[in-house]
Simulated assay, not measured.
Amino acid sequence: MLRTDDLHVFVLTAELGSLSAAARRLELSPAVASAALKRLEASLGCRLLVRSTRSLRLTGEGEQYLPHARAALQSLLAGQQLLAGGKATISGPLQLSAPSDFGRNVLLPWLDEFQLQHPLLSVRLLLADRNADLFRQPVDIALRYGQPEDSSLVALPVAAANRRVLCASPAYLALHGEPHSLDELGEHNCLRFMLTGRVHERWVFHDGRRELQQQVSGDRVSDDADVVRRWALAGQGVVYKSWLDVAQDVQAGRLVVLMPQLQGEMAPLNLICAHRAHLGETLRLLREHLVTRCQTLLERAPFRNDTGR
């Protein structure tokens, strides 16, 4: 007789390409995970995976069986949700990746609220500005700005209307003055962010008719977005950040939005997952929670009447 936990081990091992990684994700010992695979193969009477000390691959039978195993697990999950009668009781680990700045300064209290509403849920939060590999890292879903480069991933919108804004602290503006044009911006110390080795130093805006670009420079660059924001708060220069990252700083007067007549580039926030049904009700409820809180911040954005160019 087939066991659903054995199916979980097989499907996750195939997706991660590693039995040990699947075991860690499921909080099993490697021996227990290996026994689950052997038990499933014995029940089916065929070999599903070819394993060695350095590699793992699906057999022909494994490739044929994998979509059926996924469908079976998804069907069982749908049945559990149906029997729950819409009570939205969720439990177990939520393994989430998020950008450093948004995660530390915006997301943390929102997750606290979410766990108070769902006390059986445990959260594992990974903060990094590099995109998490949802197939190889211990992450179920990721919050990311922009669309995923991998077309096989599913992107669920959380804040599609979000944009970048140009801002600086009152202390910096008192010393250096406020730029009123992109030409003047080029004369200011601009705090830049670096991702995958590339410095984001060409800042893009829109004046309602056309796209405008400005090459910027400055004495500080970091691959941690939270560091860049902290430099701005300390009065070290001008920063070009997602509105969601700095909305609370602007509302508290710690930062001032500059040149609001120009629209910053789009910075949509999405929940990224490998398969829509992986977390089921947990993913749905988390997304609703985040959409509501992001919308509260977006209602106060300087571009709130924007049509979304």
Rank of each mutant, 00 (worst) to 15 (best):
V204R: 08
R144K: 15
R124V: 07
L153K: 13
A132D: 05
L127M: 09
H206E: 01
Q214S: 02
G208T: 03
A142I: 11
P138R: 10
E211G: 04
E187N: 06
E149F: 11
L175E: 14
N189S: 06
S122M: 05
E201R: 10
R124N: 03
V158S: 13
R202V: 13
V123Y: 01
E201S: 12
R220A: 06
Q215V: 02
A142Q: 11
D207K: 00
V204L: 03
L175I: 02
G146W: 13
S169H: 11
F135D: 06
G218S: 01
C190Y: 03
V139H: 04
L182I: 09
L125N: 01
C167H: 08
R220F: 04
G218A: 00
L212E: 03
V139Q: 03
D150T: 08
R220W: 06
Y172R: 07
Y145W: 14
P119M: 10
R202A: 03
Q137L: 11
R144T: 12
Q213E: 14
A161Y: 09
E211W: 03
S181C: 06
N131S: 14
N131T: 13
S151N: 09
S152H: 13
N131K: 12
G218Y: 02
A160H: 10
G186I: 04
N189Y: 04
R198K: 09
E178V: 14
D140S: 15
R163W: 07
H188I: 03
D129I: 07
G197P: 02
H200Y: 13
L166A: 09
L173V: 13
V199D: 00
D183N: 08
A161L: 15
L153M: 14
N162I: 11
D140V: 13
D183Y: 00
L166M: 11
Q213R: 10
S122V: 09
V199S: 00
L125V: 05
A161P: 05
A160M: 11
E211H: 03
L175V: 04
R164V: 06
H188Y: 10
P179E: 07
D150M: 10
L121C: 02
S122E: 06
R220M: 05
L156Q: 12
A174N: 08
L175R: 15
V158D: 08
C190L: 04
G197A: 04
D150H: 11
E201T: 03
D129L: 06
Q214H: 02
C190W: 04
L212A: 02
D133Q: 06
A161H: 14
H200G: 01
A159H: 13
P148Q: 12
G146T: 09
A132V: 11
A128C: 07
R209E: 08
R124P: 01
N162Y: 08
D129W: 05
A132L: 07
A171D: 12
A159G: 12
L153S: 10
R198F: 12
S181L: 05
Q214W: 01
V216E: 02
L173D: 09
L127A: 08
S151L: 15
W203A: 00
G177C: 13
H176C: 11
Q137A: 15
P170W: 09
V123R: 01
L134S: 06
